[in-house]
């Protein structure tokens, strides 16, 4: 029961999506399934939220390392939820209804001035790490790595007007821009395509294994 039911569910869902490419009448079943996927994903997001709350509360009650920050997490989570729920339901009560994230709502303000700077800055830090890695770690240690770095140079210097400005004294022709473009259009396309075909076949075989029930790790089997 614990193994079989999920395996059957997996196979049916998989078959419907795979076969409907060839059998048009299955289109409707497929759209139904898409509806359900969409709804299940919302629950997955809420599962994540409940999990986060659970972990944070445990951290706080057991006074584990960094529990003070867990309080902050829970508080900001509750504030965000409260604002969203308030904006959402009060908007729905209006006639005509108003969306919870229309420009001007509190939720939109939170998005613009709290969520955006935090998430953007988090990722912007990567720029610093790239720079320090380029100084400390990226080495032409063998022929392959050398080829990689050189290609990288031409792309970095060609895609912005950097190298072309340096040769401005000699020529106005955007030589490096064209070369970077050539790299992208030909060798890059070729390499990406080889990888792409390989990955497609890999996905095909793992999907097949999942649908046929050979692969069972997602249902807790091996």
């Amino acid at each position: 029961m614990r193994r079989e039911v999920p395996l059957i569910i997996t196979s049916i869902a998989g078959l419907v999506f795979a076969i409907s490419f060839f059998i048009p009448l299955l289109g409707d079943a497929q759209n139904r399934f898409s509806d359900w996927v969409s709804i299940v994903q919302s629950f997955a997001v809420w599962l994540g939220l409940l999990n986060l709350t659970k972990v944070s509360l445990e951290k706080i009650t057991r006074k584990r390392e960094g529990w003070q920050y867990a309080i902050l997490t829970v508080v900001s989570l509750v504030i965000m939820l409260a604002i969203g729920m308030f904006d959402g339901f009060s908007g729905l009560a209006q006639d005509p209804p108003v969306s919870y994230r229309e420009p001007g709502t509190n939720f939109d303000w939170m998005f613009r001035y709290v969520y955006t700077p935090l998430t953007s800055t988090m990722f912007a830090m990567l720029a610093f790490f790239v720079a320090s890695a380029s100084y400390r770690a990226f080495r032409a240690r063998n022929f392959e790595a050398t080829l990689l770095l050189v290609a990288g140079f031409f792309v970095m210097g060609g895609r912005v007007p950097l190298f072309d400005l340096l040769i401005r004294w000699f020529t106005d022709y955007p030589l490096f821009n064209q070369f970077a473009d050539w790299i992208m259009t030909y060798p890059n396309t070729a390499g990406q395509r080889a990888i792409m075909i390989g990955i497609a076949l890999g996905i095909m075989s793992s999907s097949l294994r999942i649908i046929l029930g050979i692969e069972r790790s997602h249902v807790g089997g091996q």
């Binding site: 497929q30 759209n31 898409s34 969409s38 709804i39 994903q41 919302s42 997001v45 229309e102």
Partner: peptide, 28 residues
């Protein structure tokens, strides 16, 4: 507006946009 379901949204839109977007972002 937004709809959850990732690529399944595109898949369902192939038949009918309305299926995934019964209302717009302003709830029309």
């Amino acid at each position: 507006g937004f709809q959850s379901g990732n690529e399944f949204v595109i898949q369902a839109m192939g038949t009918q946009f309305k299926r995934m977007f019964p209302q717009d972002d302003r709830r029309i």
